[in-house]
């Protein structure tokens, strides 16, 4: 049973592989051993690494390393349901794209899942190409999400170096305010504002005001303010 519960394709177990951490891994959670083995085999046949788990808890406890990829989840499973897990992931800041599998297309549930960020909602039995297309889309979405998250992390690190005053100036610049307006609002001279601006540009490693504003806007609202 233990062997069945986690299936790892041979390709994913080579520790010497330097690119391993960036190779996509698809996690499958389905309480039916036949189904999850079959799905893992299908992915393996097209060279995608897969890990299969009997329950969401088993997966959460497995402590797998962070790798790009997506999830294939049976909607209704004993214990914690697929939708519950989805909410859990969103809250914990790891919004892995999820492909839901369901025994029967339950429309309210589909809507709920799609709103929460599901990539696809497929009905069992699922055709191979349909699933592989959904997996490809899921992996791609995760790649984009991870790239964005990396950028945000980098910008946040840079942001941390700004003084409170520089951050204030940056926020005003991002709102499209002119130097003299900023100077008036903050009660400082325009020269000082210009000085802050150039410091901000340098510290944020931005080569243009446009780039600076994009970096600022990529950072979620809550995080922009938290470190001020």
């Amino acid at each position: 049973m233990d062997q069945e519960q986690r299936y790892q394709s041979p390709g994913s177990t080579t520790p010497a592989d330097a690119g391993l951490a960036e190779r996509p891994l698809v996690r499958i959670v389905d309480d039916d051993p036949d189904v999850r083995m079959a799905l893992a085999e299908l992915l393996e046949s097209v060279g995608i690494d897969a890990a299969a788990f009997a329950s969401t808890r088993e997966w959460l406890e497995s402590g797998l390393v962070d790798r790009p990829g997506c999830l294939i989840l049976d909607v209704r499973m004993p214990g914690s349901s697929g939708l519950d897990l989805q909410h859990h992931l969103v809250r914990s800041g790891d919004p892995k794209p999820i492909i839901f599998l369901t025994g029967h297309g339950d429309i309210p549930m589909t809507v709920q899942a799609m709103k929460a960020g599901a990539v696809d909602f497929l009905t069992k039995p699922v055709r191979d190409q349909t699933l592989l297309d959904a997996v490809a889309a899921g992996i791609e979405r995760d790649r984009v999400q991870r790239a964005n998250a990396n950028a945000v992390r980098r910008h946040l690190d840079l942001l941390a170096v700004l003084t409170p005053r520089e951050r204030q100036v940056l926020a005003e610049v991002a709102r499209g305010r002119l130097n003299k307006q900023i100077a008036f609002d903050l009660g400082i001279s325009q020269i000082t504002v210009k000085l802050h601006r150039s410091n901000v540009m340098r510290k944020m490693q931005a080569s243009s005001v446009g780039e600076l504003i994009r970096a600022w806007e990529a950072i979620p609202q809550a995080l922009r303010e938290r470190r001020s």
Binding site: D34, M37, A38, E41, L42, G103, V126, D128
Partner: peptide, 15 residues
């Protein structure tokens, strides 16, 4: 459930 496994295994076999 077993039917889903059958379909996927058959299609993987064909691949």
């Amino acid at each position: 459930q077993p039917l889903a496994a059958i379909v996927t295994n058959a299609e993987t076999g064909l691949r």
